[in-house]
Amino acid sequence: MPVPSLPGAVSAAPRIDVAAQLKAAMRSHEFAAGASAAAVILAPPSFPFFLRHHRENWRVSHASPKSTLLPEVTMFRLAPGANGVRTRNKDEQPDAGYRQALRNEIDKGWMFLDPSRVIPASCLPSGVSEGSYIRRVECVHPVTLQAGELYLEAWNVPQPAAGSATTFKFDRAAYERWLLWLVESGQIAGPSQDNLDAAKQRAADHLHNRNVAAYGNEEVAKHLRGEAAARLKAASAATLPTVAKAKGATS
């Protein structure tokens, strides 16, 4: 199974060269809201990452118009000192620090998403251009004021705000469109009925918890039970995504 690598990696640190478009998009986002041209992202620097999916992890959509079972996708940071990622030895290739760690994770059932794959504009927040799921922006640490690089998921958009640190807004609707696209385009193998049944069972268990709780106030009880019932309704209505034949998955 091939281990993914970051495109455009350079020797100093593992990084991805997709910054230009993103930077333009994010800066324009700030301009649109009236921030100054000199606006900087005040956030601690971070290491790049891969996004990945484990075949057991599925969830019901929250922000999609139609209730669907979507893959859960999480971040695997390439920072040395955790999860098997090590500090590269002198003269080693840029991916040498994390290659073995990725192999170990793949053996445990994780599949890593290819960062070089271009995400359609329809699956991205408004104003963020087509590109990878990983976006690099320049940042300034809010405390030390040291310049660095911040690696973000494409849906985590910096917000213009007057404050001591930049805030970010995660576009859930666009993100869930992307999750669906991952399955429909065959990059992630589709879920099974068992996955959907497990999601429904969990929602049913939560409603049961609330139905058997002797709440002291009827209004509170009504609210809490209604909340759980709505989640069960969404889970019950959820369908499996239409799956294309798997292709291009890096696992």
Partner: peptide, 10 residues
């Protein structure tokens, strides 16, 4: 680092 590891639980 501990939090990075925890965030990677399956």
């Amino acid at each position: 680092k501990v939090c990075e590891v925890g965030a990677a639980f399956t």
